[in-house]
Structures are given as C-alpha cells and as structure tokens.
C-alpha cells in the first residue's frame, strides 16, 4: 500500500488527454465521460470536449452556458465561368467526383467535396477560387468549473471529420481534457482519439459488447495509444469481457453494475455522480489508475 502511494505521488499528472471510446454505441461513453469530468473538477482544471459531432449528448447532462461559437467550413471550388474553358482538368483531378464538366457549364457537388484544393491549384486558367461551405459548428462555454467544447455536424452533412478536427483545436494542454468519442472504428474515431495520452474503452458484457470492443482495441492499438476497459451494465456474465481482457493483457479499470436506477437517472439527463454521489470516489480512483498507467508507460518509454 505504501509502495503504491509513493508510486502514485510520483505519478500525479494533472495535464493529460483522456478519450472515452467504445466501438459499440450505447455502452455508456457519455455516462463515463461526464461523471469522470465532474469527479475531477474540484481538484484539477478539467475540460470536456464532445467529439461525437453527429449526436452530441454531453450538453444534455452539463447544461453548459455557451459563450461563443465558430463555424466549421470546408473550402469548395467556385468556378469563374468567364475564365473557364471547360477543359475538364478539375473533374479529372478530383478524386471524389465532386466536379462534373458539361459542354457549357461546370457543376460542383459540395456534399462530395473534401476540400483538398487540388482543382483550384491545378486549373490551367486560374478559373477556380475557393469559398467556404459551412458543414457544422463548434460551441464553447462553461459548465460549473468545467470548460466545455462541443462540435455539431449539420443535419444532412456527411463528413464529421472536419468538425472533430476543429473541436480538437480547442484542446488545452494545461489541464485534464476528456474527449467523448463517437461510436464505431472508422475515420471519425481515429480523428477523435489521435493524440490522446490514454483511451478508456467502455463496453458491456454481451457478445455485441465483446465483438465491438475487440475492434475498438485493434483501432486504438494501431494508433499506439494505451487503453483500459470500463465494464458497464456488469452482472453475472462479466467473464465474457474479463477473459478477453486477461488474454489481451488489458486492465479493467472500473466496473459499473447493471442497475435500473442508473438507467433511470441517465434517461432524465442526470449524471451518475450527481444522482448517486458515492460514485465520485470510484471515478477519482479510476483517474488514479489512469495516471498510473500513463506514468508507467511514459516511464518505460524513457527507459
């Protein structure tokens, strides 16, 4: 115990980025992320960033005062018909088929454009300039002592990644930043998790939970980020997850039992630590465990 306390004393890290991801949706990312932030806010400066820009939910629990916002734009081509000779170069270089050159006009499909800028640069007539196309917004403000940032993708827009990128520009490297990650394993997840010091993976003890956890672990490992597991809605079937964690040498850092009371609190938009304040200690312990993991890893990297 003393040894552990000594180790902890040395491993206090008050600046780090923790992302909360899951693979499967609805396993409790938001529940864990919000309660972790609230449990730490009295001791550390804490920042909460909601990168689930397709369906951001943290604001429901935090009811933050939004003090400002910034549009997220991507640059789409604008064609000067007077200069354009319909040569077709822009359509040829566009990897996303976002431009179609017709005999008398050029059509741009903003939903397909990734904003790479190749068409404007390579147009031999200099007939293409770029204009902003708004695809979402980043909002920031305060919730109690927590710095709050969230991204929102506009309904009907397909590309969440630029919005996530913009949210992450707000990461403050002088505090504990907690990132709520979207579900899945593809580009939005990679964009959200990249740069984190640690990734918490929230799962549930079902075959769905295990299947999607396996995929999420592969993704996080491919990015070289250390991770730990939170088992939510735990019960008699925990072995499903625990056996896998032993096999993969992954630490289970917190277990939240299945409890209809917790589900009911969540349904009303109340965080776990506000609804059942005893949980605060468990989340502080979770953070201590994360600190140890990050410390050990940094230490082993230095050696």
């Amino acid at each position: 115990m003393l040894k552990r306390m000594l180790k902890l004393k040395n491993s206090v890290i008050d600046k780090m980025i923790i992302s909360v991801a899951s693979g499967k949706g609805g396993t409790g990312k938001t529940l864990v992320a919000t309660s972790l932030a609230l449990s730490l806010k009295d001791k550390y400066s804490v920042q909460m960033l909601d990168c689930d820009v397709e369906e951001p939910n943290d604001h429901i629990f935090f009811k933050p005062t939004i003090t400002g916002s910034e549009d997220v734009n991507i640059s789409i081509p604008k064609i000067d018909e007077n200069k354009c000779t319909n040569c077709g170069k822009c359509a040829e270089v566009c990897a996303y088929h976002a431009i179609a050159v017709l005999p008398n006009t050029v059509l741009v499909f903003p939903n397909l454009c990734h904003g790479c800028g190749a068409c404007a640069y390579l147009c031999p007539e200099n007939a293409i300039t770029e204009e902003d196309n708004q695809i979402g917004v980043v909002e920031y403000g305060q919730a109690d002592k927590i710095d709050f940032v969230q991204g929102k993708l506009n309904v009907s827009e397909a590309m969440p990644t630029p919005v996530i990128k913009k949210v992450k520009e707000y990461v403050n490297d002088k505090c504990v930043s907690i990132i709520d990650v979207p579900p899945g394993t593809s580009c939005p997840v990679v964009e959200s998790v990249t740069g984190s010091d640690f990734c918490l993976l929230v799962t549930e003890p079902t075959p769905f939970g295990l299947n999607d956890l396996t995929l999420a672990v592969e993704t996080v490992k491919a990015l070289g980020i250390p991770c730990g597991i939170v088992i939510n809605r735990a019960g008699k079937d925990n072995d499903v997850i625990e056996d896998y964690c032993v096999k993969e040498n992954l630490p289970v850092l917190l277990t939240i039992p299945f409890d209809i009371k917790i589900a009911k609190l969540y349904s009303r938009g109340i965080t776990l630590v506000e609804g059942i304040p005893q949980w605060k200690e468990n989340f502080i312990e979770l953070f201590n465990l994360i600190q140890e993991q990050v410390y050990e890893r940094n230490h082993s990297l230095k050696r």
Partner: peptide, 20 residues
C-alpha cells in the same frame, strides 16, 4: 429509447430522413 439523449438523437436522425 425514452432518455433525453435518445430523444435528442431521434430529432437529428429524423431530420436526415426528412432531408432525403
């Protein structure tokens, strides 16, 4: 599902259905 998150997300996905 009858959670505030569920309702919020339903409104957005219904928006996408409407748009298309």
């Amino acid at each position: 599902e009858p959670t505030l998150s569920g309702i919020h997300d339903l409104e957005r996905v219904l928006g996408v259905c409407r748009y298309f």
